[in-house]
Design a protein around this nucleic acid. Sequence first.
DNA 1: GCCAACGTTGGC
DNA 2: GCCAACGTTGGC
Length: 150
Amino acid sequence: MTYWLIKSEPTDYSIDDLAKAGTEPWDGIRNYQARNMIRDTMAIGDQALFYHSSCKVPGIVGLAKIASDAYPDPTQFDRNARHYDPKSDKNTPRWLLRDIAFVRKLSRIITLQELKQQDSLSDCRLNQRGNRLSVFPVEPAHWRLILNLE
DNA sequence: GCCAACGTTGGC
DNA sequence: GCCAACGTTGGC
């Protein structure tokens, strides 16, 4: 059982989109470190903080949970997809994904600015420099701390 | 295997 | 739109 943080650009896919869909294949991850965690460490039922990035107010906006095992991301073979990967072979797909399910929206956005002000979260990956991974594990203590800010 | 060039992420 | 901090690619 691992807690996660997953990022999404709200203009691309927001927490409201997930709320409407209920469950959604979490596609487009094209980073080996992220791929390995999706494949090896994630488990069905794991919970995740849903984070909005590259937007006016970056921050945590909701909760989701992992809803499937890992399987090949179909968008890697789609010539017209944004994350098409011509070098990925259908017999040994390079990129995997999992379905994620909507749990709930937070009552308010817990902003990145706020999270940065928490001394106890200074060793959370979110607050470390050059943090560009779109998915990473969150310590249980950090998880509780973050949700207590809600 | 090194490393420069290039591409991407994401806050600001 | 800028730029820091990566990750990836490809020549050698």
